[in-house]
Design a protein around this nucleic acid. Structure first.
Lengths: 158, 158
DNA sequence: TAGGTTAGTCAACGTGGTTGACCAAACCGT
DNA sequence: ACGGTTTGGTCAACCACGTTGACTAACCTA
């Protein structure tokens, strides 16, 4: 029978998950900065993803990101100022203001996707494809299923 | 030969790492709240860890956390107000002010460690000890070695 | 048409971070 | 022993991101 593994302290697991996440995000934004998107902050990538190619409204964006509509509105303001998003009136509902990606925003979103693929590829070169897939599958198994509705910002600040 | 796995989009990996981390941290603080530490925010746990049983100074704390000494000082202020930390004069260097855990702070730190161990145990019940250890080992392999000097807050806000 | 719901905005505030400026204490080379 | 530099702490102003509460305008429906 195999010698029992010594007990590992529980806090290294969250630290390593955070370290892995941060490494990917930091590498992503370092490369994005090189490709002409230096002003994009980590949060902004998630926002662009949540807006999507079809656009949304500020309230719906708040829902997707799990924050208030006011917070979503302010974030949209900043990304509009940076040239990543634009607002347009909805001809069928004068209350709504559509939030859409500008060409610059779409460019940032597309580059993010490419870079993320490259970074995952780099992980498979050190770990092998099976190990990376195993990490993903295992994490899916221990993570609430509803998590993937992009429930992201604001959690750390509280 | 095995059928080649279809390419997985790169962005699910960071999302799952974040989901795993957040799940652990959220569960930790839900349990901490039940055990009388409802005011502890996610950030505070790292700060208590960084202060440690021996105490430090605000500047050194800033180094450990990777933030400015001013930011560290403000966070210490808040945790002093909450009763988790206390300041004391250094008899050998009148400039320094030692930051120490109060009994309440030490209690929170000890409970965090216990709860983290329980949470890791819960993961091994669904995944098996080998898979959890494999996640840790794999993440160590793709994460900068210097990461473990607790380089944590402020990265998301940027 | 009146009454309720929904989208957006404004204001005030809290938290966590940044830089720059400053003082007092400590250290160090002459 | 003294004078210049380094170090620790604090203050002030500011920024990013979040919250709640209050309010208006537009839409929907009984």
């Amino acid at each position: 029978m195999p010698t029992p593994e010594p007990q590992r302290p529980g806090f290294v697991l969250p630290l390593l998950l955070l370290a892995g996440f941060r490494t990917l995000i930091d590498d992503l934004h370092a490369e994005l900065a090189r490709q002409g998107h230096a002003e994009l902050r980590p949060l902004h990538g998630f926002v662009l993803q949540a807006v999507g190619a079809d656009g949304t409204t500020a309230s719906e964006l708040g829902n997707r990101l799990g924050v208030s509509k006011q917070a979503a509105g302010k974030t949209v303001d900043r990304l509009v100022a940076l040239g990543y998003l634009e607002r347009a009136d909805d001809s069928r509902d004068a209350r709504r203001k559509l939030v859409r990606l500008t060409p610059h925003g779409l460019d940032g979103l597309r580059r993010s996707a490419v870079i993320f693929d490259e970074l995952r590829q780099r992980w498979t070169e050190t770990l092998g494809a099976e190990r990376v897939a195993a990490i993903e599958d295992d994490l899916r198994a221990v993570t609430p299923a509803n998590w993937f509705r992009l429930d992201i910002p604001g959690w750390f600040t509280g």
